[in-house]
Nucleic acid binder design. Structure first.
Length: 106
DNA sequence: AGAATGACGCTGA
DNA sequence: TTCAGCGCCATTC
């Protein structure tokens, strides 16, 4: 089954267990596209909400939510979802990426 | 077709 | 530690 880049990203993100965090680079590398971290962000941006994909568990390598005007505030929704999963998020969108880091399969 | 964009990552200061 | 610059590559105009 030939899937688009976006679908591969969504599949990888769907593997993230609840209460865990993953970075765009991790997802990119997981789908065999190391260096395409930006494209992962696009896939999530095109992701229709609401969706069954735990996109809120994906943050950048800095360990903070990527705020952007293009998200129309969906970034703050991500913060709320993370708090709902027991992950403390700072007002600046920063979170403890280390302890909550997801260990990808493979 | 060519140029610009972007929910990133890494290195250097 | 934080800030700025450069590189990566698919999508879009």
């Amino acid at each position: 089954m030939e899937q688009t880049f976006d679908q591969r990203v969504w599949q990888a993100v769907a593997l993230i267990p609840q209460g865990k965090l993953a970075t765009y680079g991790q997802i990119a590398e997981l789908i065999g596209a190391y260096g395409c971290a930006r494209q992962v962000g696009w896939a999530l941006r095109r992701l229709p909400l609401p969706s069954d994909i735990p996109w809120h568990r994906v943050v950048n390598a800095r360990g903070c939510i990527s705020l952007s005007p293009s998200r129309e505030g969906s970034d703050w929704m991500q913060r709320d979802l993370l708090l709902s999963e027991g992950i403390p998020v700072d007002e600046e969108g920063r979170l403890p990426l280390g302890p909550y880091r997801w260990h990808p399969p493979g």
